[in-house]
Structure formats: structure tokens, C-alpha cells
Simulated scan of single mutants.
Amino acid sequence: MTSMHYQYLVGLTTVSAIISETCAVIWKKLCPLVLPSTINTEEWQRIAKTFSNTWNFPHCIGAIDGKHVVIQCPNNCGSMYYNYKNSHSVVLLAICDADYVFRFVDIGAYGRRSDGGIFKDSIMGIKLENKQLHVPEAAPISDERETPLPYCIVGDEAFPLTTYLLRPYPGKQKITPQKRIFNYCLSRARRVIENSFGILVSKWRIFRKPIIASVLNTTRIIQATIVFHNWLREDDLNNCPNLSYVEPHLVDRESEIGSVVGGTWRDITGTTAFSDITRADTNTSTRTAIEVREEFCAYFNNEGAVSWQNDYL
């Protein structure tokens, strides 16, 4: 904003106001078109089918993760935005589909909070808990299994294990090979949210370094980039001529033997506005949630196995 203030010879406050108002209008107009607040059952099933075809993970309707968006210290904020990495931040929590399209976002939570706590108190978390998002009913995951399994989102250790959210088995050395295979399969599906955040950093230069703006303006900037991302990504998926927002080399991809070829977004070096949230949530879970994960684990070790998975234990 300071460089624009000098470049265009307008007041710094005016620059800030223009950016804030413009981002607010972008969010207001595009959000209903590219980030609707509700998804019908048929669309959830289409998302699940894409996850199954692309990442061999059936009944997956999204991948969830959060990022600290590093900001300058807000005025009179106390310790609310001060996170455990010794910086000030707001949290961007997002669920995306297998096509790198954001489906739900929660923007602006205090940096001191954990992913799991933010998700639990967010509108999307509350609606998932109360079964208000039109998610398809539980159904058998394959012809060989009669036990109905719910449709789930996948996340990392920062999130709680529930019947609608799968997380990895905790620990790396003491778990069985079967559980390691489940963790591997889950990490493959969860990679889409990492790629989605990587696309944001690559394409939107505002995220290349900590954001110097008020909390309100930072939130509006993030909102504008999210809806622009979805708008451009949907043009990609509709084969819009002369437009390629996400080039194949930009995101992580797999070789024929299952090894990961890192996307070019990982080549971005130095400090960016995004930092990981690594504080783990509680490992306590309901018996039903544990049984659901066990059923998925059994599936991936039998009829749902991919030929190379034992090479990555």
C-alpha cells in the first residue's frame, strides 16, 4: 500500500480504503457464484466420485486444512492474534475438492487458536456436526463390504476424529503396517488442500510475504483471492480457451510407481504469508468414529489397495 501511495500520488489512507472497498465488492458479487453456502447431495456425490477416480479414496467429499496468514501486529489486540510461532496471524481454514476448488472457508480466526477448535466453532463445522449440509447418507464402500460407511472429509492430526472427518492414526513407529497404509492413502487424498494453498501463494503475490494491513483489510484481501481462485479454476475445468490458471507442473503429481513429483509451488523460497498449523488436537474419539476409521483401514488393505502402497510404509 505504501508503494502504491507513492506510485499513484494518493494518500495512504485512500489506497487502503480503495483496496478494502474493492475486495468487499468482489467477495459480495462472486461468492454466491463460485463459493455457495450450500451444496446439494448430487454435487457431493460428484465430488466423492472425483476423489475416488483421482486419489483412490472413496466416500471422500473434501480435504481440510488451515494456514496462519502472517500479519503485522494489530493495534490494541493483546495476545489474541499472537500464535505459538511467535508471530501475529489470522487463520484461513478451508475445505477443497479434488479439483482444487475451495468449497467452504473460514477466514479471520485468532492466530492463537488451533485448527480443530476453529473448525468446531465454524459454521461449516457446526453444520457438518448437525447434518445440515445435505451430505449423502452412509452407504457400502464397495461390493465386497456390506457395512454402510459415511461420506467424510480428510484432515491431518490437528483435527478431531469424527464420523465425518478422518484423521491419520497417531504415532509413526508404533502403528501396524495396515495403519501405515491407511495413513498413506489418506495423505494422498489430503494433498489436494496443500496444493490449493500452494496455488494461492504462487498466483497471488500478496501472499509472498507477511501482509501489512489491518485485520479487516487482510480478511477482505483473502476473501477476494479465494473467490478469484475459484472463478479462474472453474474456467480451467470448463476448458476455457487461452486460459490456464493451474498448469500441470504447478501442483504435486504422482509417477506411475506412486512417488510424488513436487509441484513448482514448492520452489517458492523465503518467508511467505502462509505458515503451517501443527498443534495437534485431542486424540480422544467416539467408538463409532474409531470403527469408521477401522473400516476404511480394512478397505485400503484389501480390495481398495493400490499396487505400490507397500513401497511407502
Rank of each mutant, 00 (worst) to 15 (best):
S52R: 09
N53M: 11
N53H: 10
T54C: 07
W55F: 15
W55S: 05
F57I: 02
F57C: 09
P58R: 05
P58E: 04
P58T: 09
I61G: 03
G62Q: 09
G62L: 06
A63H: 06
I64E: 02
I64N: 03
D65R: 00
D65A: 01
G66K: 02
G66Y: 03
G66Q: 02
V69P: 12
V70R: 15
I71K: 10
I71F: 01
Q72E: 13
C73F: 06
C73Q: 14
P74M: 07
P74D: 04
N75C: 14
N76M: 12
C77T: 14
S79V: 05
Y81T: 05
Y84T: 02
Y84Q: 05
K85R: 05
N86Y: 10
S87I: 13
S87Q: 13
H88E: 01
S89Y: 05
V91P: 01
V91G: 04
L93K: 03
L93W: 05
A94S: 13
I95F: 08
C96M: 09
D97R: 01
D97K: 01
D99G: 02
D99Y: 02
D99N: 15
Y100W: 14
Y100P: 04
Y100H: 14
F102K: 01
F102E: 06
V105S: 10
V105F: 10
D106W: 07
D106N: 14
G108C: 11
G108A: 07
Y110E: 14
Y110L: 12
R112Q: 11
R113Q: 12
S114P: 04
G116T: 08
G117L: 06
G117T: 01
G117Y: 10
I118G: 07
I118K: 12
F119G: 00
F119A: 02
F119H: 00
K120H: 11
D121E: 15
D121G: 02
G125W: 04
G125P: 01
I126Y: 12
L128A: 09
L128C: 03
E129C: 08
Q132I: 00
V135P: 01
V135A: 13
E137W: 03
E137F: 06
A138D: 13
P140I: 06
I141Y: 06
I141K: 07
I141R: 06
I141V: 09
I141D: 04
S142W: 04
S142D: 06
S142Q: 10
D143Q: 14
D143N: 11
E144C: 11
R145C: 13
R145N: 13
R145D: 12
P148Q: 08
P148L: 08
L149I: 10
Y151N: 06
Y151F: 15
Y151V: 05
G155P: 06
D156S: 01
D156M: 00
D156V: 00
E157A: 12
A158S: 09
P160W: 07
L161E: 09
L161N: 10
L161Y: 08
Y164P: 00
R167T: 11
P168Q: 01
P168V: 01
K172N: 12
K172S: 10
K172H: 11
K172T: 14
